[in-house]
């Protein structure tokens, strides 16, 4: 219960303090610092774009924030909990229940059905057969692909594949969705459709959205743009004129929902 009190004090879903990530052995010549003293606070329901040139450390930052990788230095809090203290069970649990992932290269089991791909997080969570089906169908409906449930994943188009991945990211009701270049492999029309789905989720369900991208247009649709250069944050702009309106909307929606808190209470 101490956790939930802490959460009310810190209504941040992600709180990164002075993250440094160095690849390679400490003294080795090949060592490379991909993140330098990065601090970032992200509130529940925000949409954040991480922008920068290739090699600037975007993916590295995302992986660290998504608890997939440990920072070399610095501290990371997720929903008020210090990640260093979580242990591998806690980490797995948090990733499974609180986070959703969408990757540029999709990462699906091509020979499996769409439905089975979407249920994977629920299977890992150990949900019952019926919950799996129901929630997966809901998620597929949310991305407009219910009629493809029985198809093999490899038979889908690129845009459909990415929508299946979004459904998969969505299926366990996460509080944050991380998307690494989600439209990178798509043409602009299908990319726009995928974008729309992601932003709708952010707006309507209050899911925090963290998008890694090259694309200034997508970045502009986010409430917040974090620019990375050589592993450092060079600018962090909130509420661009275009998203100022959406911010209001989101905060209005977000307040009564209090997603993370509600979920924690359920468990």
């Amino acid at each position: 219960m101490a956790k939930s009190t802490k959460k009310t004090e810190t209504p941040l879903v992600i709180d990164a303090r002075n993250l440094t990530k160095t690849y390679g052995k400490k003294r080795s010549e090949h060592k490379f610092t991909a993140l330098k003293n990065v601090s970032l606070e992200i509130a529940q329901g925000e949409s954040v774009a991480i922008i920068g040139k290739s090699g600037s450390g975007k993916s590295t930052l995302m992986h660290t924030l998504a608890l997939l990788d440990k920072p070399t230095k610095g501290e990371l809090y997720f929903a008020g909990q210090r990640i260093g203290k979580l242990g591998s069970r806690g980490l797995n649990r948090t990733r499974n229940r609180e986070l959703g992932f969408v990757f540029q290269q999709f990462f699906m089991n091509a020979n499996d059905t769409v439905l089975n791909n979407v249920t994977l997080p629920l299977v890992i969570a150990g949900r019952s057969f019926f919950t799996r089906r129901r929630r997966a169908m809901e998620a597929l409906r949310a991305v407009g692909l219910e009629d493809k449930a029985k198809n093999k994943a490899k038979d889908l188009s690129g845009g459909q594949k990415q929508r299946v991945c979004i459904a998969r990211a969505l299926v366990n009701n996460p509080s944050v969705i991380f998307a690494d270049e989600p439209t990178g492999n798509l043409d602009s029309a299908t990319g726009a459709m995928v974008e729309k789905i992601l932003f709708d989720l952010n707006r309507k369900q209050g899911i925090t959205l963290i998008i890694v991208t090259h694309d200034e247009d997508i970045a502009a649709k986010c409430q917040r743009q974090v620019y990375l250069k050589d592993g450092e944050i060079v600018s962090d702009t909130k509420k661009s004129t275009k998203s100022a309106k959406t911010t209001k909307k989101t905060t209005a929606k977000k307040a009564p929902k209090k997603k993370t808190t509600a979920k924690k209470g359920k468990k």
Binding site: N92, F107, P121
Partner: peptide
């Protein structure tokens, strides 16, 4: 390899 990575990312324990 990728599938294992994905499942681990989604919280499947070692």
């Amino acid at each position: 390899t990728k599938e294992i990575g994905l499942m681990k990312a989604m919280g499947l324990s070692s």
